[in-house]
Design a protein around this nucleic acid. Structure first.
Lengths: 84, 84
DNA sequence: TTGTTAAATAATATATACTTTAATTAGTAT
DNA sequence: ATACTAATTAAAGTATATATTATTTAACAA
């Protein structure tokens, strides 16, 4: 389990979230957007999942990723707490 | 110049922001809350400042730190963008 | 000027994080 | 069973971040 802050610190991971904003995608589809190796992408997806920033569902031999609001809410709440 | 995400990834730095929520403090005052060396704290304050998460004002021989909403807004805006 | 305090910078060591190649697991099809 | 595809895991190298000791700068006071 990892916290959302560590997960969001990396540019590639924030871009993954941007891409998933449009809708769910398989790991392979996400891979096409980047110029990194598959294990590296897999690592980033794992970090995002551990931080509850994405959900992963297995469909056949693919794994479909989508945004998870849970982790995003943690971040919003912290920021809101500082502002008020 | 550093981005807010990298700055917020570190626990000590997020705690510094929590402490500053109550009001402005000198570097020395902030130091008392932690069990790290002064140079290490100084580094963290520098990262927060570069990310526009804190403001630093020199008063006499002290430097007074306070929250800077600018960096916090960047973070909120990104999260809001993902949610909608 | 000398000494004292507050804080930052420099240099270095240690710890974490990211990336890669190679190997493995799980699902599907022939 | 064998082969193929999608994705992850393992091991190792590289890069980045954090922490420490030692040194330096700046403000103030005797």
């Amino acid at each position: 389990m990892r916290n959302a802050w560590e997960a969001l610190a990396d540019t590639t991971r924030r871009e993954i979230l941007n891409i998933l904003k449009k809708g769910e995608l398989s790991a392979g589809d996400i891979y096409d957007y980047f110029d990194i190796t598959k294990p590296s992408l897999s690592h980033h997806l794992s970090v995002l999942k551990q931080a509850n920033l994405v959900k992963a569902d297995k469909r056949g031999q693919s794994i479909i990723y989508s945004l998870n609001l849970k982790g995003l809410n943690e971040v919003s709440n912290y920021i809101r707490g500082l502002k008020k």
